[in-house]
């Protein structure tokens, strides 16, 4: 399409948007509402995803070694862990008794450590699973190996933070499912709503389309201004939705700022996708919805 041709189509679209102001407004508001809700869902969804990812990332399996463990016994445990394909090999670290003490010195005061006396901290292997869900199985695979510190009821060995992790992961999975389902339903509703709005607008102008075709307009010649119209309305609606989302983000700063209140044990806090990214996505969605909505609904009216 040459640029003068495009300019003509664009002018046609703008003119028609102006003359059919009521329908334009309806389409813009529809896109605005749908995409605003979608944007909120996307923010919360990505926030939650980032949170659970943090939990998963930090899910470390700790294998406590007995002070009496021989070098061969320690080697067996290490071999077993590294041979397991579910284990993220490079993440495996050996923490010696001294290193464990040094780590503890950062957390606990010297008096406390002095009171305990000596070095009460056992050496350990720390390792991560490729997929956090395999943590339990990996832990079980080295359970009861000779050379391990004996497990007690409140100090399991190996320890993968079972109680906390299982809870968090299962809740997160459910919430993810719900948000995913809502997104699908919203998307469908959006397409139907926008399609319907555009159909009303085209239906009101079907005589016009008929006349255009009668004087020799091709389908694309009739379709282009309509599609541009849909795209313009969709983009305007999306921009407004993005603006609304930006305004609302003031009320949920923890979702958008890394200085969030809910910190995972990871070094970084959970965070939603940046606003500009979500905004850009909304605009793309508005553009696509407008084009697809009008393009698809046009088909019925062009068979003349």
């Amino acid at each position: 399409m040459s640029s003068t041709r495009f300019r003509w189509f664009f002018g046609e679209a703008l003119r028609s948007l102006k003359t059919n102001f009521a329908t334009t407004l309806a389409a813009v508001v529809t896109v605005l509402i749908v995409l605003y809700i979608f944007g909120i869902g996307l923010s919360l969804g990505t926030y939650l995803k980032s949170y659970t990812d943090g939990v998963k990332r930090d899910l470390t399996i700790k294998v406590w070694l007995a002070d009496s463990a021989t070098e061969a016994q320690v080697g067996d445990v290490q071999k077993q862990l590294l041979a397991d394909p579910r284990v993220d090999g490079p993440s495996l670290v050996y923490v010696s008794q001294e290193a464990a003490l040094r780590e503890a010195q950062k957390t606990y005061s010297a008096e406390v450590l002095h009171l305990v006396g000596g070095n009460p901290f056992p050496a350990s292997f720390r390792v991560k699973a490729r997929d956090a869900r395999d943590s339990a199985a990996i832990a079980r695979s080295v359970e009861g190996f000779p050379g391990l510190e004996p497990a007690t009821s409140d100090l399991p060995n190996p320890d993968y933070g079972a109680k906390v992790a299982d809870k968090v992961l299962s809740v997160a999975r459910k919430v993810e499912l719900v948000i995913g389902g809502v997104a699908v339903i919203l998307g469908l509703a959006a397409v139907l709503l926008i399609g319907n709005t555009i159909r009303l607008s085209i239906f009101a102008r079907r005589r016009e389309v008929e006349v255009m075709k009668l004087v020799g307009a091709t389908n694309w010649f009739v379709r282009w201004p309509f599609m541009l119209e849909g795209m313009i309305a969709g983009t305007v609606g999306a921009l407004l939705a993005a603006a609304g989302l930006a305004a609302s983000s003031a009320f949920m700063p923890s979702v958008f700022e890394s200085a969030g209140t809910i910190k995972t044990s990871a070094t970084t806090a959970a965070q939603a996708w940046p606003l500009w990214q979500i905004g850009a996505l909304l605009v793309l969605a508005g553009l696509g919805l407008g084009a697809a909505g009008s393009g698809l609904t046009m088909r019925r009216f062009l068979r003349i």
């Binding site: 003359t19 016009e208 008929e210 006349v211 255009m212 009668l214 004087v215 020799g216 307009a217």
Partner: peptide, 18 residues
């Protein structure tokens, strides 16, 4: 069968624009 939202001039021009 004229296009209602176009002027006389634009209606005639449309047949050439297509």
């Amino acid at each position: 069968k004229l296009l209602p939202n176009r002027t006389v001039e634009q209606n005639v021009a449309y047949a050439l624009e297509v």
